[in-house]
Amino acid sequence: MRVLYFAWVRQKVGIAEEDVAPPAEVRDVATLVAWLAARSPGHAAAFADPKQLRAAVNQDFATPDHPVAANDEVAFFPPVTGG
C-alpha cells in the first residue's frame, strides 16, 4: 500500500510518501490512521487529531469507513484550501 502525505501532514510525518504493509486488521481508513499513528513520533503528531485530516483512496475523497486494500494509494491531508 502506498501512502502519501500533503501540506502540514507531510511536514509532521517528515516524508511525502511511503510503502507500508499493514496487518489484516487494518481494513478501512480509520484503522489505517490508528496503525500509521504508531509508526513514529512524527506520524503520531500528524494523526493526533483525525478530525483535522481528510483522506483519499485511489485519488477519490474517502470517509473513515472507506475500505483500504494492499494495492491502494491512500493519501492524508488537511482540508483543501485552493482557489
Binding site: F6, A7, F77, P79, V80, T81, G82
Partner: peptide, 22 residues
C-alpha cells in the same frame, strides 16, 4: 475551493510561515 486538493502555505517577511486553514 472545497473539492480540489490544493493547499496554500503563506510565507511572511522574517521567515515565518503558516498553512491557510479551510
Amino acid at each position: 475551493k472545497t473539492r480540489a486538493p490544493f493547499w496554500k502555505r503563506e510565507e511572511f517577511a522574517g521567515g515565518t510561515e503558516r498553512w491557510v486553514e479551510a
